Each structure stands twice: as structure tokens, then as C-alpha cells.
Simulated scan of single mutants.
Amino acid sequence: MIKEIYTTRATAKGGREGHVKSENGELDVDVRGPGSPGNYLNPEIMFAGGFAACFDNAIIGTLKIKKIKGATHETTVQVTIGEIEKNQYGFEITIEVAFAGLDMKTANEVVEYAHQMCPYSNATRGNVKVDLAVKELVN
């Protein structure tokens, strides 16, 4: 059991060609499958956004825990969906964190620590191929 911090809900109707709404109404969007024309959201975009925000927050927490000041960063999460076997689908994920004001050795240590902290990382660990990448933040 986990010690609950927060619980929320969202409801989908119509699958990948339908609609998703959160219980607080802030997420209230039509969704389309990958490759659909025009501007749209799909589950992979929402997953990538949630993972990126959560992982970036784990970076912030790690920097505080390790008492590292003056570093700036941004986190990008790439989500790829593909077929594992006939009619079985899965993800591959790349998490890229760009840092300024931090040497690459320390940056890699921060990312590894954050990867242990992030709930998305913990949810996917052992189930999804996740690659971590660190680079220099260029403004």
C-alpha cells in the first residue's frame, strides 16, 4: 500500500476517437489516434506531458535534497507506441534532461536519483524500455 498524497480521476468515452474529461473539468478534450490530421491530443501526448512534468519535479526535488543551487533545467519526454506482438502494444520512452550550471557527472547523478523518485518512472520500471539522456541546456 502507498501512503496516499493525491487521487484524481478522468473518464474517456469513444477511445482514441473520443473524449476525455477529468473530474475537476480542467482536462476536457477530444482525442484522436496517432497520425490524425490537424491539431489534436492523443493518449501518448498526454502521457508524455504528464511524465515530463512529473520527472521535472523530481529533478527539482533531487536538486533540493542534494543542496545543489544555481542549476537550470528542462525535461523532455518522448513516448513511442508500437506493436510488441500481434494485437499487443507497448511504449518505449526517452527522458532527456538539459542542464545549465551543472557539470555532466553531477547532472547524470541527479537524473538517476530523480528516476528513482518519479512516480511515472516507478510505474514504468520493469515494464517499459526507458532511456535516460543528459545534455547541456542551450538558451
Rank of each mutant, 00 (worst) to 15 (best):
G61R: 07
G25E: 07
I81F: 06
I65P: 10
C54A: 03
K69D: 15
D28F: 00
F47E: 09
L41C: 09
L27C: 13
T75E: 05
Y40T: 07
G35M: 06
I45S: 00
R32V: 06
E26D: 14
D30L: 13
G49L: 08
Y40V: 11
T62G: 00
V29A: 12
L41Q: 12
K67V: 04
I65C: 04
G33D: 08
E44C: 02
A52E: 05
M46W: 07
P43R: 00
A48H: 08
T72A: 04
I65Y: 13
G61D: 13
V79H: 09
G38F: 08
V29F: 13
N42Q: 02
V29Q: 12
S22T: 10
T72F: 06
G70R: 09
V77N: 05
E23C: 05
L27R: 01
Q78I: 05
E74V: 05
E23H: 11
E74I: 00
P34D: 02
T75L: 05
N57S: 15
L41I: 02
I59E: 11
H73I: 05
G61F: 12
K66R: 14
A48L: 09
R32K: 15
Y40Q: 07
G38S: 02
P37F: 05
E23D: 15
E74G: 12
N24H: 13
G49R: 09
V29H: 06
N57H: 15
A52M: 11
T75A: 05
A53P: 01
Y40G: 00
G70S: 07
I68S: 06
G50S: 10
S22Y: 12
N57G: 14
I68L: 04
G70M: 03
V79G: 00
Y40S: 04
F51L: 02
G25Y: 11
G33C: 00
F51N: 01
A71P: 03
T75H: 04
K66N: 12
F51A: 05
L63C: 04
S22E: 11
D28G: 05
F51V: 10
N39H: 14
G70E: 03
V31Q: 08
I59H: 04
D30R: 14
G82L: 02
C54G: 05
R32G: 07
